Amino acid sequence: MKELKSMTEFQQAVEDNGSVFMFSAGWCPDCVVIEPHLPDLEKSFPQFTFYKVNRDHFIDLCQELNIFGIPSFLVYKDGVEVQRFVSKDRKTKEEIEAFLKEATEK
C-alpha cells in the first residue's frame, strides 16, 4: 500500500484504471484493527492499486469528499468515484472484501 504524500499524487492516482483509497490516522483504533488484513486484501484484488491517505494530513480533501469517519474507503476508476464505504463504524475484513468485490463489478 502506497501512502500519499501530496494532492498531486492523489490527483494522479484518481486517474488510474482502479484505485482504492483508505482514509485513516495513526491514532484511530479501528484503523489499527484493519491494518493487518490490508496485505491480504491487496493480494486478493490485484486489479486495484491501494493507497493510504492520512486524514490528519489531508483534512481539506476529507472535507471535500465527505469523509467524516475512519477508516473509510473510496474506489476510483478513470477519474470517477465508483464505490464508497464511508462511516465511523469499525469495519471487518469480510465487509471490506464484499465492498471491493462489488467495486470490481462496476
Rank of each mutant, 00 (worst) to 15 (best):
D89W: 03
F10P: 01
N66H: 15
E35W: 08
D78K: 15
E15V: 01
Q47V: 13
K77H: 08
N17Q: 12
P36R: 09
L61T: 00
K5Q: 11
V32I: 12
K5F: 03
Y76D: 04
F10C: 02
P71D: 11
C28Y: 07
A13F: 05
C62V: 06
F99D: 09
P46D: 00
Q47A: 10
E15M: 15
W27T: 05
K106I: 13
D40A: 15
R55D: 10
K2S: 00
V33P: 09
L41N: 05
N66K: 15
K91H: 09
S72E: 02
R55M: 10
A25Q: 06
S44T: 09
V32S: 11
P36L: 08
Q63N: 12
P29V: 15
N54I: 02
F23E: 04
L74Y: 06
V82T: 14
P39E: 12
R55F: 13
Q12V: 02
P36F: 04
D78G: 10
V53H: 05
D30E: 06
G79D: 01
D30Q: 03
G69P: 04
K43G: 02
F58A: 03
A98Q: 11
N54F: 01
S6W: 08
I34E: 07
A25K: 04
D60K: 14
G18D: 00
D89L: 09
K91Q: 11
R84H: 13
T49K: 12
R90C: 06
V82F: 02
G26S: 01
M7L: 13
N17R: 12
G18A: 08
W27F: 04
V32L: 15
K101T: 15
F45Q: 10
D60M: 12
L100A: 12
N17H: 15
T49G: 03
K2C: 07
V86F: 02
N17I: 09
M1K: 09
W27E: 02
I59D: 11
L100N: 14
A13K: 07
K43P: 00
T8H: 13
S87M: 05
I34T: 10
T8G: 08
R84K: 14
I59P: 08
L74W: 06
E35D: 12
C62G: 06
R55P: 01
V86R: 03
F50E: 00
V53M: 03
